[in-house]
């Protein structure tokens, strides 16, 4: 995959939100997570093109409503598509069926083409929906929403720790790379480069671990005993109920379309 299409982890600040505020931010995080899950379930299990196209349009609409950064979102969606590009390009040629056209003597079947199209629609609809209604909350909020949805405590703690360390490790990595560059280290395609990078990763992990041990000690010193307190307000407001009603109606329409 070309490098410019890859995500840059450094563009993400984890705990801080980096998007324009929109009405989606006023919704309860639990409902956002739950609705994204149901949407993914319906879209992935459907095979009707009407449903898939409606789903994709709904995702696009929500992306618009969530005021996602167009350039950043486009890059991410394209990067996701690149993952499966080979799969999708090959499908028409490997699925047996009625030949539609042929490239260099290999016939492409209609069934394969439709299958490829279906995968593309599903993947894009789900990812866009995720980015617009779950990806717009801060990772900490996501953790709290998961805790309220009865996800095991330890897993939620792990998520919150990971979010914290992403920043730490990312910065430490950049610092160490700069130090190597200052000593005239250039990435090449040889075992010296790979070994040096292995040492870098080993050191990176050790430094981060030592740092995390200090954090844990500091937390224990302040009375941490394996529990975070969720202090956010969890009362559902009016807009939550209206959103739920809209979602329920929309999902029923999607389900009904499958049987038309």
């Amino acid at each position: 995959m070309p490098q410019f299409l890859e995500h840059s982890g450094s563009s993400w600040k984890g705990q801080r939100l980096k998007h324009e505020p929109s009405w989606i931010d006023t919704l309860d995080p639990r409902i956002r997570v739950a609705s994204a899950f149901v949407f993914a379930l319906i879209v992935v299990l459907s095979n009707d093109f009407g449903v898939l196209i409606t789903g994709l349009f709904a995702s696009l609409l929500l992306a618009k409503l969530a005021r996602l950064n167009v350039k950043r979102t486009l890059r991410r969606v394209i990067a996701m598509d690149m993952f499966m590009i080979f799969l999708i390009v090959m499908l028409p040629f490997t699925t047996p069926g009625e030949a539609l056209f042929s490239v260099a003597g290999y016939p492409a079947s209609l069934e394969g083409l439709l299958h490829a199209l279906r995968i593309t629609l599903k993947a894009n609809a789900v990812v866009l929906m995720l980015l617009s209604i779950v990806g717009t909350m801060s990772a900490t909020t996501l953790g709290h929403a998961m805790a309220r949805l009865k996800v095991p405590d330890k897993l939620v703690h792990l998520l919150l720790f990971t979010v914290r360390y992403l920043d730490v490790i990312g910065q430490e990595y950049k610092r160490m790379r700069r130090a190597m560059q200052a000593r005239a280290f250039v990435l090449r395609s040889n075992s010296h480069t790979w070994r040096s990078m292995g040492y870098l990763i080993g050191m990176l992990l050790i430094r981060s671990l030592e740092r995390s041990e200090r954090i844990v000690d500091a937390m224990k010193c302040r009375g941490y005993k394996g529990q975070f307190y969720l202090m956010d307000n969890t009362v559902l407001a009016r807009q939550d109920y209206s959103y739920m009603v809209i979602c329920a109606l929309f999902f029923s329409v999607l389900l009904a379309l499958n049987f038309v």
């Binding site: 982890g9 490790i169 992990l205």
Partner: peptide, 18 residues
């Protein structure tokens, strides 16, 4: 937990070390 969290984050970071 901290050690597991670090390795979890390392997996994430590794995907942009080319």
């Amino acid at each position: 937990l901290p050690q597991v969290g670090i390795l979890s984050a390392a997996f994430f970071i590794a995907s942009y070390i080319h």
